[in-house]
Design a binder for these strands. Structure first.
Length: 554
RNA sequence: UGGGGCGUCGCCAAGCGGUAAGGCACCGGAUUUUGAUUCCGGCAUUCCCAGGUUCGAUUCCUGGCGCCCCAGCCA
């Protein structure tokens, strides 16, 4: 259906690769998506892996999925599985190339030994605090560790004992011997290996020393023959270090290119914060439909194609950028508008009785599943003398531009007749509780015989056949465009981001598949919750509202 | 006041010396049994600022200014 066909605009990474290929600097394109399995993927990760897999696709190369699992304390298999599922959900395939940094632990160890032997690495026995103090500051150079000039033999011996588990955590650390006065902090003798008596999700208890990300990442890329190591901006300063390791080791050199990570308005993207929202139960879990996680968006009903289109649309640059939520929502609507079946559902019921429609009559009207796609067929819609419309579609004293129902006014019932409000019934509190209307029985599928126009169209359900379902109304998680501008981002939480209500829906909306999305006409898109729905008892999540120009006029 | 980056429309973003693409948002207007969709039209004489080079600069040079990142035995 071609809705996700976005004109492919160039970006600086694509340009670099195209040029490299053209002038023979590279013969093939190998990229990779290197998540750490310590949390669920969010839309920002989607930007990253769409870029990596997309580039590989465009240039007939390949893209690996590699888990950078160098810190056993934070990583779990649960996340590995979830991450794989999320990448697949977006339609990407790493083929044979599923890798783990931990696959390279033996090689990494050998390389560490090689650097020690070359006098390029040493075992430091300072405490973490001492190391921090001696690192200097942004404007002051650091000072050498008193252990910096240990002999190769001693370093080898110590490192071997570290590996053998003879020391407690933190007792020693292996550092690269580079330059304590480098203006680049990453080059002030960075840590390569630390002692961690921890169980690793893949290597078990084989190791009690683990490589730092900085000592594993670049070499992992090198081993895999990754030609373009695409990563986010904060690693720009690390590139000289990665290049240094590669050069000292004399191994294949990938080219690192950095791009700006995604920021989306009205949400937060840091794993730490998302984890806090989950742990402290501000949301129901990683898959809460308000979360910017892929599992959350999936549950909310965002189609994967919409997310891919979004990632393509926002482009890739080097400047810190904030994407407006409306861009994502537009992608979602664009996709859903094409595919979602239309249904009628009333969220705020107001009773309507038709005075001139037989009380014992039930008509089965026919309504198209999609107004622009007749090939999607029709469904039956029961109609009777007692109906419900939405309270928002009636006003006792309607303003000029309000072309819905009001005393003496006419309106078209979607897919049914035109009715006229003859009487407004109120309770003792003065609240409107019922509308008595007359129906023009000559207007099914046609305009009134006298040719007068009825502009307003309203959704409705037949009282007797309508079914009650739970509907969950989701809105943006935060009130502020940038929650981090608040004193504490938790204070920017939107108290109305979740409301639950009961709706009256047409019968067709009962036997529905979890995960399927419908458009409740004039209201929005709603997806059957995949977790809390039961057979014959669906729970609907509001995926996104319809555009509402009337709301803007008000 | 060290180092690394970035500055093109409200938000993204093409452009790479020849006289400012596109998307979102916004504002019209047409069609419409969803105030939806669709469709037309509008929306930067100007590219952070100031100089300079050039017939000509958003694109090259110089100098400012502004913003982001870096001092984990995290990634």
């Amino acid at each position: 259906m071609g809705t996700s066909e976005t004109a492919v605009t160039s970006n600086f990474i694509r340009n670099i690769i195209a040029e490299d290929l053209e002038n023979g600097k590279r013969e093939q394109v190998v990229t990779r998506f290197p998540p750490e399995p310590n949390g669920y993927l969010h839309i920002g990760h989607a930007k990253s892996f769409s870029l990596n897999f997309g580039l590989a696709e465009d240039f007939s190369g390949r893209c690996h999925l590699r888990f950078d699992d160098t810190n056993p304390i934070k990583e779990e298999d649960e996340y590995v599985d979830a991450i794989k599922a999320d990448v697949r959900w977006l339609g990407f395939d790493w083929g044979e190339h599923l890798h783990f940094a931990s696959d390279y632990f033996d090689q990494l160890y050998l390389w560490a030994v090689q650097l020690i032997k070359a006098g390029k690495a040493y075992v430091d026995s300072q405490t973490a605090e001492e190391m921090r103090e001696n690192r200097g500051t942004l404007t002051q150079p650091g000072v050498n560790s008193p252990f910096r000039d240990r002999s190769v033999v001693e370093n080898l011996e110590l490192f071997e004992k570290m590996k053998a588990g003879e020391f407690p955590d933190g007792a020693h650390i292996l550092r690269a011997k580079i330059d304590m006065s480098s203006p680049n902090m990453n080059l002030r003798d960075p840590a390569m290996y630390r002692i961690l008596h921890a169980h690793h999700h893949r290597t078990g208890d084989k190791w009690c020393i683990y490589p730092m990300y900085d000592f594993a990442h670049g070499q992992g890329d090198s081993i895999e023959g990754v030609t373009y190591s695409i990563c986010t901006l904060e690693f720009e300063d690390h590139r000289p270090l990665y290049d240094w390791f590669i050069e000292q080791l004399g191994i294949f050199a990938p080219q690192q290119i950095e791009f700006a990570r995604l920021n989306l308005s009205y949400t937060v993207m840091s794993k730490r914060k998302l984890l806090q929202l989950v742990n402290e139960q501000y949301v129901s879990g990683w898959d809460d439909p308000r979360m910017p996680t892929l599992v959350g968006m999936r549950r909310r009903g965002y189609p994967p194609a919409a997310i891919r289109t979004f990632c393509e649309r926002i482009g890739v640059g080097k400047g810190a950028s904030w994407i407006d939520l409306s861009v994502l929502e537009d992608c979602v609507r664009e996709q859903l508008n094409e595919s979602a079946y239309r249904r009628l559902a009333v969220l705020k019921p107001l009773k309507v009785t038709l005075s001139n429609y037989p009380a014992d009559k039930i008509e089965m009207l026919e309504a198209p599943n999609h107004p622009q796609q007749p090939e999607l067929g029709k469904r039956k819609l029961p109609f009777s003398h007692e109906l419900y419309i939405d309270r928002d579609d009636f006003m006792e004293e309607p303003p000029k531009k309000f072309f819905r129902l009001g005393p003496g006014r006419e309106v078209r019932l979607r897919n049914a007749y035109i009715i006229k409000c003859e009487e407004v019934i109120k309770n003792s509190d003065g609240d409107v509780v019922e509308l008595r209307c007359s129906a023009d029985l000559d207007t099914l599928g046609q305009n009134p015989a006298d040719g007068h126009k009825v502009k307003g169209i309203v959704h409705w359900v037949s009282a007797v056949q309508a079914q009650e379902v739970e509907v969950r109304l989701y809105d943006r998680l935060f009130n502020q465009e940038n929650p981090d501008k608040a004193e504490n981002y938790l204070q920017a939480l939107n108290p109305d981001s979740f409301q639950t209500t009961t709706a009256l829906v047409e019968p067709e909306l009962i036997a529905v598949e979890p995960g399927s999305t419908f458009q409740f006409e004039r209201v929005g898109y709603f997806t059957v919750d995949s977790k809390d729905s039961k057979s014959g008892q669906p729970v609907f999540n509001r995926t996104v509202t319809l555009r509402d120009t009337w709301a803007k006029l008000k």
